[in-house]
Computed example of a mutant assay.
Amino acid sequence: MKGIELWLPQQTPTELVALRADGDVLAPLPDGRRRWVHHGSSISHCIEADGPTGTWPVVAAGLGRVEVINLSQAGNALLDPYVARTIRDTPADLISLKVGINIVSLSAFRLRTFGPAVHGFLDTIRDGHPDTPLLLISPVSCPALEETPGPTATGPDGRLAALGDPADVAGGALSLAVARAELARIAAARQASDPHLHYLDGRELLGPDEAGDLADGLHPTATAYRRMGKRFAAHAFATDGPFR
Rank of each mutant, 00 (worst) to 15 (best):
K2D: 12
G3S: 12
G3C: 11
E5R: 15
W7P: 11
Q10D: 04
P13M: 03
L16P: 01
V17I: 14
R20L: 15
V25C: 04
L29I: 05
P30A: 11
R34S: 13
R34I: 03
V37P: 07
H39K: 10
S41V: 03
S41P: 12
S42R: 06
S44Y: 09
D50K: 06
T53Y: 00
V59A: 05
G64V: 04
G64W: 06
V66I: 13
V68Y: 12
S72K: 09
A74I: 10
G75S: 02
G75A: 09
A77D: 15
D80W: 15
P91Q: 03
A92T: 10
D93P: 06
L97Y: 02
V99D: 00
I101D: 01
V104Q: 01
V104H: 01
S105F: 00
G115L: 13
V118S: 04
V118P: 07
H119S: 06
G120F: 07
F121D: 15
D123R: 15
P130Q: 05
D131S: 15
P133G: 12
L134M: 14
L136N: 08
L136H: 11
V140A: 04
P149Q: 00
P151H: 11
T152I: 15
A153V: 11
P156H: 15
L163G: 01
P166D: 08
G171P: 02
A173S: 06
V178I: 10
A181D: 09
E182Q: 05
L183W: 04
R185N: 03
A188V: 07
R190M: 01
R190L: 08
A192P: 08
A192D: 11
S193D: 15
D194K: 10
H196Y: 13
H198R: 09
R203K: 14
R203H: 07
E210C: 12
A211Y: 00
G212F: 04
G212I: 03
D213Y: 12
A215Y: 09
G217L: 02
G217D: 05
L218I: 08
L218T: 00
T221P: 11
A224D: 05
R226N: 11
R227D: 13
K230D: 13
F232C: 09
A233I: 10
A233H: 07
A234T: 04
F237M: 02
D240K: 12
G241D: 03
